[in-house]
Amino acid sequence: MGPSRRLLLGIVLISGSVSLASAANPPDPLQSPTWEAMHQRVLSGASYQFSDAVRVIMPERAEDATRVPVHVELRGLDNPRELVIFADLNPITEVIRLRADSTLPARGVGIQMKVQQATPIRAAVRDAQGQWHVAGHWISAAGGGCGAPSRASVNPDWNRDFGLATGRRWVRHTGTVPHTRINVLIHHPMDTGFVAGIPRFHLERVAVRTPSGASVLEAMLSAAVSENPILSFDLPGTDTVAVEARDNNGNPFVVEWVN
């Protein structure tokens, strides 16, 4: 066997093994150094695919690393069960995780988050078969969003607005199908605990319920969510909902609606 044929065989063997591997674990289009760790930690090692059924709207650069807007839309996934937004290279990787008892009703989610450095920001949605659908983009950032003290922590009047929780709802239509957008603002410092002398203090759980108290969805928040977060959810139908939250110190918050 001449050297060229040996080389050819080598290439065939290598490419064969790559295609075998990619059938199980598609390569990360964002080429993050920690994608496999994210896969294990955030997606529990479950099967995944990169998918345009999940759309992540975010800026290319973080103008303010303490408040980077991220909006996620689900398109054509009929039975989502769970949605998580995370940033591979953030010291707090997981930002928010939404769950429901059965089908996750939210088709759109908007948040603002902190980034500590340039990082992929992604959304992953788990379907009824347990498959994750993942999308995202890199953001460039000067950094420091997680290590900055909250404005509240350096403001002697911080508790003047603390706990103020207010929301508003809009009925929208996709064709003739109505859905409801809710935006809620909860005044909270969302301290990461990374600043000396300022302990970790953040909203931990936001629950959306029907007026009669049945669970619509639950959101688990980390301190990577921005201070005084404004959360947006798109929910099917036109029914009103109640939103309550709790922080890691056990403080309860009840959203008051202005409409």
Binding site: I57, P69, G110, Q112, W170, I230, S232
Partner: peptide, 11 residues
Amino acid sequence: AAGLSMGEALA
């Protein structure tokens, strides 16, 4: 006033 999130407004 139309309820757009910050991400939607940015886009």
